[in-house]
Design a protein around this nucleic acid. Structure first.
Lengths: 336, 336
DNA sequence: CTGAAAGCGCTTACAG
DNA sequence: CTGAAAGCGCTTACAG
């Protein structure tokens, strides 16, 4: 920087001003400095800048899962190949990129929370996007206690004031139930997500309570784990106990893909013998044969909105928390 | 830090020493400082530390693709939901995590290279893991010119000295060809990857040249793009022109999944009518019915090795470049 | 083994 | 509009 200042015949302060586009620099000097910058190939040192501005230009995307049996590459593998998390990452990146803000992705389980908290406290990032899917997860409160700008992926279980985005899961499940009824299915069943996850619980509630109002109580349910293999297992068990099922709601697309595979193995035709509806509208939906009818969540847009909210909180720390809600929609394809 | 020093009755230098586990601190003092740290809740400021140590504790994972029609969320979406890149990320993370090194993922196309280069020059990271899949990609050379520690995902096209990892793609393709022949297939064909990518070209070469030696010349080939939808298209075209095909090698699993879908639509039984072999052994292989026989690349292990190599280069900038090679293996499942 | 001091490379009131 | 100077919060020779 001294070199640039010398080459341009100005002070370091002025060099700094042109780098940061301060309006108070005379055009001629600005140009002279710019030439000196190109000539010397100078670039700012981001650590030095961060030290004084208190801004890093990075945010963390924390993906918090319940404790894993083994925190290893199989956990990381599941996270990084999950189409849902992939869409979140893509949505967040696309919103952040224009602002030149970078994303550090931190998958974590509860055995690992302290590492994440330490990382955040060390000031590596300006804020955090927190994807927490379990009721009992203490991380949202811990992050909130840190006082660092944060946006959550759903209403936090704890009563903390924080911005979050939201989809009406119950409404989504109801859309699925309505469609199955409309199709004339009479023996409905569902593969739910994990019932200790709000997303799992709410989709089941929404599905069941709509059917109950239509006089259909006690719809069979087997709990799955939101993975494809888990969906296969759950569907196999469900179909073994309830072979007559003709309409199946599966709480996410990955499990639905597994369920379709099982139906195929069992020689059941979809949708003629069994109509199937998934949830998410992820890429897995198009990998099914027939293509999967599913409840769409605009995941990319939600993640982008989380990023925008976070940027706003970083720019103005006194900004009041707000939540923004997205509507699920039914995407009708071949499976129901 | 002053606060901690005062509370422990020592200098800041000593506080720094205990934080960094310098061996030359008396046990009693060390303990006193540690208590003061817990009492005050002190954590280091990473920007200040980086400014003096020249270490950030982060590395970049740069995923360089050819120029996109639109650099937007659909590009990011493809990258972040691609099982191959997901495995790379997981493998790199799992190797880096024990060293407390963080990963910032930078998908980029050629319109965007200057941003990546600027980011790297600003010193945000200690090194870069570069996934570059195109022959003409100038990024490996640019990164090398920066003088920042880097490890490549394959032998760089340019003659630059750099560490890289490698799988023998030709051998992998040959494994597929051998297996198809052994099965008794006589009318072979292939869906290749993009032929401007070494991985696409080499798999095709390996497949064809083995067959040629067996007297099978001019095996039909349609070029695909490594996506599932691209695999569907390519398979459809191939089968329209060559309906008699009884053995199909598809250059990655995602395209193979698409090809299997097309075969299903066409009423062809797999493997009885057509045997199908993929490449990668990604999660897509298990989403096929029947499950996909495929050439396994140990992608996670390769990415972990890249990370280890990078860490070694960061620790010792004078270390000589080396390459480490992995063997592909055939994983036999139901499709062939 | 410990401390005083210099220095990492920036930005930003403050004065002019 | 520009510059001299202080200061961001650490680490690390250097001296003792």
């Amino acid at each position: 920087m001294d070199e640039v200042a010398a080459a341009a015949g100005v002070s370091r302060a002025t060099v700094s001003r042109v780098i940061n586009n301060a309006p108070t620099v005379e055009a001629k000097i600005r140009e002279r400095v710019q030439r000196a910058i190109s000539a010397t190939g100078y670039v700012v040192n981001s650590a030095a800048r961060t030290l004084v501005t208190r801004r890093t230009g990075s945010v963390a995307l924390v993906i918090s899962e319940p404790e894993q049996r083994e925190y290893d590459s199989s956990f990381l593998n599941r996270i990084f190949t999950d189409p849902f998390f992939g869409r979140i990452t893509a949505g967040a990146q696309s919103a952040l990129r224009p602002h030149d803000v970078h994303l550090v992705i931190l998958p974590t389980d509860s055995s690992d929370h302290h590492q994440v908290v330490r990382y955040l406290r060390q000031g590596h990032v300006d804020g955090v996007l927190l994807i927490s899917s379990h009721d009992e997860d203490p991380l949202p409160e811990q992050v909130h206690a840190l006082g660092i700008p944060a946006v959550m992926s759903a209403r936090p279980a704890a009563a903390i004031p924080a911005s979050f985005v939201h989809t009406d899961q119950r409404l989504g499940a109801r859309l699925a139930a309505e469609h199955l009824i409309r199709r004339g299915c009479t023996r409905l069943a569902t593969v739910s997500g994990p019932l200790d996850m709000p997303a799992g619980q709410e989709r089941l509630d929404g599905f069941r309570s709509f059917l109950q109002r239509r006089g259909l109580a006690d719809v069979p349910c087997v709990e799955g784990d939101f993975t494809r293999a888990g969906g296969e297992d759950a569907a196999r068990r469900l179909l073994a106990e309830h072979p007559g099922v003709d309409g199946l709601f599966v709480a996410n697309d990955l499990m639905a893909e597994g369920a379709m595979l099982v139906l195929h193995d069992l020689g059941r035709r979809v949708p003629d013998d069994v109509a199937v509806i998934g949830f998410d509208d992820s890429s897995a939906a198009l990998a099914c044969r027939p293509p999967l009818t599913t409840v769409r969540q605009p995941v990319e847009e939600m993640a982008a909105e989380m990023a925008e909210l976070l940027l706003a909180h970083i720019a103005d720390p006194d900004r009041l928390p707000r939540s923004v809600s997205f509507q699920p929609t039914l995407v009708i394809r071949g499976s129901a």
